[in-house]
Write a protein that binds this DNA or RNA. Sequence first.
DNA 1: CATAAATGATAGCTTTACTATCTTTGTAAA
DNA 2: TTTACAAAGATAGTAAAGCTATCATTTATG
Lengths: 226, 226
Amino acid sequence: MDLDLRIKMNDRLFLRNPEDSVLGKKIVKHGLLLINKIGFEDFTFKKLAQEVNTTEASIYRYFENKHRLLVYIITWYWRFLEYKVLIGLNNVTDPKIKLQTIIKLIAEEPKPTQQQNDFLTETEAYQLVIWEGSKTYLTRNIGKDNKDRLFKPYKDLCESFAALIKEYNPKYKYPHSLASSIIEIAHSQNFFKQNLPSLTDFPKQQDDKKLIDFLLTLLFSTIAIN
Amino acid sequence: MDLDLRIKMNDRLFLRNPEDSVLGKKIVKHGLLLINKIGFEDFTFKKLAQEVNTTEASIYRYFENKHRLLVYIITWYWRFLEYKVLIGLNNVTDPKIKLQTIIKLIAEEPKPTQQQNDFLTETEAYQLVIWEGSKTYLTRNIGKDNKDRLFKPYKDLCESFAALIKEYNPKYKYPHSLASSIIEIAHSQNFFKQNLPSLTDFPKQQDDKKLIDFLLTLLFSTIAIN
DNA sequence: CATAAATGATAGCTTTACTATCTTTGTAAA
DNA sequence: TTTACAAAGATAGTAAAGCTATCATTTATG
């Protein structure tokens, strides 16, 4: 699936739009790679500056702090995923197949592709979401960040998902909670599978088949129409 | 439910056992309160030292760093919860009621009680789990920390939960994943309800009744025996 | 070609996250 | 009742993180 898309980013996320310059794109791209490599806690703008052959001060011209950079990348991913869902559901009419499709898109580890070398790559972004995604909102800044609409992409995705659930079974009482829960579970189970495998029933060295089966069963049994 | 219990803590968590001294207990108690107040990111041992009227250096004699203190409190909570489960399931034989009971114990916001004034309180610990719980393991130290068995209390709780699921339906394929998922969801939904309510279907100013209903339906529909 | 904007280079400041050392205090065995 | 020894206090110091400021130098743009 090739998507040549321009994702509109919330301009509260940056001081200078990173998409507008070579340096900006390098900051975001290598930011993603470096956070994945050393973890968000150990990640600093100084280290990133070295990777990108620039200075700390230059990075601060693009992003207020490392948290904003993190949110930038994570929300980019949510928007990207929503595009994928949009494309993936194109021409699909059966509500059941729609739900199966969205679950796969959410939970399946994306395959590495060649393109988009100069900006964010889906596979790396997916890893970032698994490891650092919840750190975007588990912060005392959540009130302010929410007012700045930083979480809109995530909310939109949940809303789309919830709409499909409602379409399948209009009487189900908790479509939003179910949607956000399944998204969260997909990532936490993926994390546990890699790092705390006894919390799952998935063999470490295996694809996401079982995880998807688990999620599909969970979803369809709870929204089943009796 | 009164529990006068002594929770055995993993001694890799501390340098000096905080339960053995007045200062140690104050550090842990006010550590919990202060993290809840200002958030883990802004929390420092220096600030805690001021709260407790001691010095930074003294706190470092008990805990290697703030992450260990966090894990200490969080794992204390998991152990505490497992005791509650143990007591709560005492004399219960019906597997269905067992599962209902454990869900309630996991998801229900504990009521404030008077006791345990000098150490950790359940209500505060519950808030900490919601806000900071996942930060215990979403770290590059997870491999080492896991070897030190820091996550054993959490694993044990999940294992107990999974065992009840297996008892109810021995044929269900994903008892561990389901157990850990429900625990995680309980907290993330609780967080969303407070902070990003559009991700849930629960009114902000209300008890956990709907959340528990959501979880119960989720659990029992997916493990239903056809 | 002029000029504005972006970047580089450098400096500096406050806070965090520790470690070290030395002194005082409180407690428990000799 | 001394003695001794561990816990805590007091103080200092260090490297890194997390910024902000300034000025010089490139690089785009009209």
